[in-house]
């Protein structure tokens, strides 16, 4: 029993650590995505499926 608990608590920090990492990265990504100035770039990109089989000029 003791052995069991010890062996588990040892590694329990891993899921927690990764949760924190995960949140940080995610918030970071959100900030980047909503950066001012990104909108113009997204504008054309979002039209890519509509441009794909026409001559583009």
């Amino acid at each position: 029993m003791k052995n069991e608990i010890l062996s588990r608590t040892d590694l329990l920090f891993l899921p927690e650590l990764s949760l924190v990492l995960f949140l940080l990265i995610f918030v970071g990504a959100l900030v980047w995505i909503f950066r001012p100035g990104a909108k113009a770039a997204y504008e054309r990109r979002s039209r890519l499926p509509l441009l794909d089989d026409e001559i583009e000029s």
Partner: peptide, 25 residues
């Protein structure tokens, strides 16, 4: 299907600010 496409050395888009994600893409 055959299509005419613009050659890649032509700039496709004039972006004023190149965002992190667009570089990644």
């Amino acid at each position: 299907e055959k299509v005419e496409v613009v050659l890649p050395d032509e700039p496709h888009e004039v972006t004023t600010s190149v965002s992190w994600h667009s570089r990644l893409e």
